[in-house]
């Protein structure tokens, strides 16, 4: 096994992926066992609704942290965990939504429609979930090839909006104690702020270099390194 952190062997990466997979699954397993054992407090539906929602948000933020972590650490292989993290975020969102439809509302479609249309915190949470669906559906190499890297990338930039919607959803839900939503909002602000800052640096860098030679003008210049 290659123990070099900078360029681990394929086997090490697979092992690492397996560990992250298990860790991502842990909260769901915990909730399922707690439900079985009747150990989720007086209002177990509220407990699993809250937990699945909060894990969605955490996983979204972790997914968005991959790129900054990779840039700061130089561990480029971290990128290979991102798809799995994003899919787990979607899985928890799906669970959260299913709990709401089934256990919370018991498929009372009138009440659900009213909730989505009339209650801003649900509207914005629902929007975040709907926007996640195309990202989950195109999170495979086939979709990347079909869409082309650029279109795929601009589609997947909607994850920034999704993360903002998810934080707003939580913020508007709480009655008075905004501590937790504020924590997530701050982390998201840092993650998005870094990207804005990098963009600005890149813009300045491009302004400072001489214009490209005539024969390169209409060609795509790859700014992202190949995987």
């Amino acid at each position: 096994m290659n123990l070099s952190l900078r360029s681990p062997s394929a086997g090490t990466i697979v092992a690492f992926k397996a560990i992250v997979f298990a860790l991502c699954l842990l909260p769901a397993v915990n909730l399922a066992l707690g439900w079985q054992a009747n150990a989720l407090g007086a209002n177990p539906i509220e407990t699993i609704t809250r937990a699945s929602g909060e894990w969605t948000l955490r996983l979204l933020l972790i997914t968005l942290a991959v790129t900054p972590l990779r840039r700061f650490s130089g561990l480029h292989w971290l990128l290979r965990l991102r798809r799995m993290l994003g899919l787990f975020a979607f899985a928890y969102a799906l669970g959260h939504f299913a709990i709401y439809l089934w256990l919370d509302q018991f498929f009372d479609w009138n009440a659900i429609a009213l909730d989505i249309l009339d209650r801003p915190f649900i509207t914005v949470g629902f929007a975040a979930f709907v926007l996640l669906i195309p990202l989950a559906a195109t999170s495979n190499s086939f979709a990347i090839r079909r869409l082309g890297g650029r279109r795929w990338q601009s589609l997947h930039r909607s994850v920034y909006a999704i993360a903002i919607f998810a934080v707003v959803h939580f913020w508007w839900l709480v009655k008075a104690d905004i501590g937790r939503p504020l924590l997530y909002a701050s982390i998201l602000a840092v993650l998005l702020g870094l990207r804005g800052w990098w963009r600005e640096l890149e813009r300045r860098r491009q302004l400072s270099v001489p214009p490209p030679a005539k024969h390169l003008e209409k060609k795509v210049i790859r700014l992202v390194p190949r995987q």
Partner: peptide, 16 residues
Amino acid sequence: PRWSQATERRIGELRK
């Protein structure tokens, strides 16, 4: 303003 008051969940019960 943020949620319905038409139904309630009696603690210990599943259905509202």
